[in-house]
Simulated assay, not measured.
Amino acid sequence: MDISATHLRAVRAALFTAIVVTLGTASHVLLSGVPLPTATVTATAVAVFALAYLLAGRERGFGRIAALLVPLELGADTIFTTGQHACYGPAGGPVTGPLRSVGWDVLCRGGGVGTPLGHMTGSGAARVSTLLADPATAWLLLAAHVGVGLLAALWLHRGERALAQL
């Protein structure tokens, strides 16, 4: 079976995008306790899908999948943090004042992704300030991102292998 056919390429890219964006979104909302702007998640998903579609021309091994997935997950996390700070401010509340007057309301319109998940974790500002108090937290978060990324890469690699064997 030719796994580089257009319809299979789109399905493979969509699965890759779903995993990267879902892992990034869920972990980010759970750790921060603050929802993500819909526009930020949508733009990230479109960019990841486009990149995955371009690179889905042939079967990839575990190393190549992991080499793409882990940095994309970390990059998505950075973009999500930027979106949260732009729309909700560092304390997790709505941004008011000068940022609102220059059009940030267009970016932040449409509600937040993960709002129910964020409410389950408690107050975002208190949670983030508590997490950032310990310097080892950054290394722990990086290790968690890399570990989850490697597990997801292994899962995707096995799926690639199964699809190729069909």
Rank of each mutant, 00 (worst) to 15 (best):
A43Q: 09
T81P: 11
T78G: 12
I79E: 09
T42E: 11
L68H: 05
Q84A: 14
L55H: 08
G83F: 03
V41P: 03
Y88N: 15
V46C: 08
T81C: 12
A56Y: 00
T81A: 15
A45S: 13
A43W: 03
T42G: 12
G83L: 08
T82N: 10
T78M: 13
Q84M: 15
A86F: 15
C87D: 09
I65E: 02
L72S: 10
T81F: 11
C87E: 04
A47G: 13
T40N: 08
A43I: 04
V70Q: 13
Y53P: 04
G63S: 11
V48P: 07
T81V: 14
G63R: 12
A76D: 02
E73P: 09
A50E: 02
A66K: 05
V46L: 07
E59H: 04
A43K: 07
C87I: 15
V48S: 04
A67L: 10
L69Q: 10
A56S: 11
F62L: 09
A56D: 04
E73L: 15
L68R: 07
F49M: 03
Q84W: 00
H85S: 14
L72Y: 06
A47N: 08
R60E: 02
T40Q: 10
A47W: 03
Q84V: 14
L55M: 12
A45K: 07
F49K: 03
E73S: 14
A50P: 03
G63F: 00
E59I: 03
